[in-house]
Design a binder for these strands. Structure first.
Lengths: 338, 338
DNA sequence: CTGTTAGCGCCTTCAT
DNA sequence: ATGAAGGCGCTAACAG
């Protein structure tokens, strides 16, 4: 591999000059510049990013850690982060944590070791909180994406979970649903507890009995599935809301276990949803995050923080969209008073 | 940030000793070692990977470029690569190419600039071939994953596409299907042309007329959808095979366009398939790649190549599995001569 | 068993 | 407008 020394020798200049034409960091005479460029071309020289980074203690790169790149929402976020990063001349380094706390820790370490100038953390596993404070001391600033932590003075970008759920429930109560099951999952996760709050908002808006609603929380999806299936078999419940994709999987299986069918005799709605929503049967009414834009927003926040490390932390919330599909449609036709 | 000099000073030793305890690269007396360790602990010192890499010209890391981390198969491959890498003490750097040639190029560049010790390329976009030769000259060895290139002397790991398709077609002809539509897509992609070859194998095995089969090739999914829909409306075709997930999307939409239904009056099978195959309706018969294992295999190949750069290139093919589901079931019941 | 020292390739101040 | 030279933090001879 050719180095600056080679280029300098061939061009008949000092390495200092080579460096300056490379970085446009001071004027160099047209003719010398051309000689240098020619030498670069001839040798196929390329800057050594590592040496450069070491000297500048800056890498012009940022890192992104996602818990499950396989989920469509995360893929979109990653895409947004990538696009925004590229637009700012930053390269993006990625690492998966596979929803595993240990792996996540390693991934973060790897990226930090590589001296990324900043870090975006999407959906830190639940165990992350203990590790976040330690990251505060790193020189690389941090922004949290999607899964936020209320109590930490951090830059964060998330969605308006509570509002969205409320809108969804309002829509369903308007369709005359009065007995809901809400699959809320692990309410230690802020996004999920916010969604649950929004559910209660919606129930109150319609002056419905909270006692008539089935609220399923916890971390054991199999148990949730069993409980929901049992309820659906026995009760006259008419609507199921799942608060995330994995919870939707459990809930859909429960619907099937119970011998119920969507949308014929139970309405179904989910947050986040599945890939190919128009192919998935039944087509599911879905509250979708503006994942791409969230990624873009995260990069903005990160860049601003890199600029001014001392400003006070900001939380950005983006609006979600309610995508109505057939899984919540049948009751509308059959029940609305005409 | 503390450096080795700080540690050395505090421990009252030379930086050389610090380096050696850190890397276990020569014997150091128990007591000194402990002093060093204590100093490291006290200062919170951590090695500077960049400086280290620069000095050793080795990073103990490998890179992975995938075209679409969102597709389940790629997510699994990535997971396999990650696991295998970790098992060998390597850290993994990821980059998405979003199925875009330019982006892919940049991603590769980024990783190479970061001095990964080797590179795994999964599903290079079609335009990659022109760029592959140039990568041959890089010091970092390369292994291709999933989307292979026949003519290049490269390490590759893929699936036994031709065999798998043949098995699938054999299964379907045994169920009395005689008129197929095969959605082959862009046959410049080796995996797809291999699958098409396997299709013809299967047709020949059953002594069926090739002329009676509808073979849809090309890069325009909308056109494929339209052609297939038209055919399904007019013909008595009974089975559709899609050769990849995107092609399956087009094909499923065509089935719907034509007013046909799976599996009631048309059997359907696909390669690769969708996430949550047991939730997706209809449940699709799917030929699935051992994606995780492919990732693992790729790392093995890469490590061997790093060891001995001069050995002759190897291609590893893994066997796929045929997952039978209801989308190919109805005809079995109704048509098999009893 | 431990220390000294020469770079790895680059950027950047200080001279000229 | 250009050069010379000092380090960034580390590893690996080479010496003792």
């Amino acid at each position: 591999m050719a180095t600056m020394v080679d280029v300098a020798r061939i061009a008949g200049v000092s390495i200092s000059t080579v460096s300056h034409v490379l970085n446009g960091t001071r004027n160099v005479e047209r003719s010398t510049k051309e000689r240098v460029l020619a030498a670069i071309d001839q040798t196929g020289y390329r800057q050594d990013t590592l040496a450069r980074a070491m000297r500048r203690s800056k890498t012009d790169s940022i890192g992104l850690v996602v818990s499950d790149a396989g989920e469509p929402a995360f893929a979109d976020m990653a895409h947004g982060v990538e696009t925004a990063a590229a637009a700012h001349g930053l390269t993006l380094l990625l690492a998966n944590s596979a929803e595993d706390a240990d792996r996540e820790k390693r991934a973060i370490r790897t990226l930090l070791d590589r001296r990324v100038d900043g870090l975006v953390l999407a959906r830190a596993a639940d165990t992350a909180p203990d590790l976040l404070p330690s990251l505060q001391n790193e020189k690389a600033p941090l922004v949290l994406l999607d899964r936020l932590y209320r109590d930490l003075p951090l830059d964060q970008v998330g969605a308006e979970n509570r509002e969205s759920m409320r809108t969804l429930v309002n829509h369903l109560t308007r369709l005359q649903h009065i007995r809901f099951a809400v699959v809320a999952g692990d309410t230690r996760v802020p996004a999920l507890s916010e969604r649950l709050d929004g559910f209660f908002d919606g129930i109150r808006d319609a002056h419905l009995e909270i006692a008539n609603q089935l609220v399923l929380t916890g971390t054991d999806d199999d148990e949730i599935r069993a409980l929901l299936a049992r309820d659906l078999r026995d009760s006259t419940r008419t609507a199921v809301i799942a608060c995330s994709t994995p919870l939707a999987v459990a809930a859909l299986l429960a619907v099937e276990d119970a011998g119920r069918a969507t949308p014929d005799n139970v309405a179904f709605a989910t947050f986040d949803g599945f890939a190919y929503p128009d192919l998935f049967r039944p087509r599911l009414t879905t509250v979708r995050q503006p994942a791409f834009d969230m990624g873009v927003a995260a990069v903005s926040l990160l860049l601003e923080r890199i600029e001014s490390p001392e400003g006070s932390p900001r939380t950005v919330r983006l609006r979600q969209t309610l995508e109505l599909r057939e899984s919540t449609e049948s009751f509308e036709a059959s029940r609305i008073p005409s």
